[in-house]
């Protein structure tokens, strides 16, 4: 059983440790992530939760190769994350829209398709498909700077899917969106799940996480405090995810006289 478990894990983090230089900290070093270990399996929607400063973004940065770990390892599809090839089968949607604003949605997607080495016809087909999926087909030739925030977030989603990824890393995908925008993103995630894609999901929207995710890990002070299937955790703690989260991070409501 253990062997089978390992075989279908497509993201594996083992004793990950990330230190930053911080002159204000004792010893001049800040430990952002300490001995972090978890795995994400094929077909899961995995919620990666934690308060601000818990180490979520740092972990995400290590997975994306932006930051090199001080210790431990992280692998995507069995390849060390420091190798660019490890990111061949992933899609990443950042929290805020960081795209070349002078490009049109079509040009942006074509650029990323080229980065993945897609052939022109294949890229054309995929771009058409994605722009229809995120409902930006009608404005595909408008520069991204003219888009609303919701439209920009949907461009982001489309670029994250350009290579038809097996693993999707979403960093606060619905942050700042209106309810309709959130619903659309949620629908797309569910559709991807139906297609058997794996989604690694970082969010503060715990209600949303409860609805969308199969499994969650709650991070606090650089370490996983709780990890398991959503249904199992709800049953074990006999409360909703938000209450579990607050309990894990040790939140004490102020006492009113």
């Amino acid at each position: 059983m253990g062997q089978l478990w390992k075989m279908d894990s497509i993201l594996r983090v083992n004793n990950l440790r990330v230190e930053y230089k911080a002159p204000s900290e004792p010893g001049g070093v800040k430990l952002a992530v300490r001995d972090l270990s978890f795995e994400v399996h094929q077909g899961e929607v995995f919620g990666f939760l934690g308060p601000n400063g818990a180490g979520k973004t740092t972990t995400m940065n290590v997975l994306l190769g932006y930051v090199h770990a001080t210790g431990g390892s992280a692998e995507l599809f069995g390849v060390d994350v420091r190798q660019p090839i490890a990111r061949r089968r992933i899609g990443y949607l950042p929290e805020l829209t960081y795209y070349y604003r002078f490009l049109t949605a079509e040009e942006l997607l074509r650029f990323y398709a080229k980065i993945f080495g897609m052939r022109r016809q294949e890229a054309d087909r995929r771009i058409d498909e994605l722009l229809k999926l995120v409902e930006l087909d009608a404005v595909r030739r408008r520069p991204i700077r003219t888009y609303s925030k919701g439209m920009q977030q949907r461009v982001g989603l489309a670029q994250a899917l350009i290579n038809d990824p097996d693993l999707l890393l979403l960093d606060e995908p619905t942050s700042g969106l209106d309810p309709i925008g959130r619903m659309k993103v949620r629908e797309i995630i569910q559709r991807l799940q139906e297609q058997g894609k794996t989604v690694f999901f970082s969010s503060h929207e715990l209600g949303e996480v409860e609805t969308v995710c199969n499994r969650v890990a709650i991070l606090h002070r650089g370490q996983v405090q709780v990890e398991g299937p959503v249904k199992g955790l709800l049953a074990q703690y006999q409360c909703n995810l938000e209450q579990i989260f607050l309990k894990v991070v040790g939140y004490q409501p102020p006492v009113t006289p």
Partner: peptide, 11 residues
């Protein structure tokens, strides 16, 4: 502009 992040998330 942080455009480097989605770019480096690609191979």
């Amino acid at each position: 502009s942080r455009t480097i992040f989605p770019l480096l998330a690609k191979p």
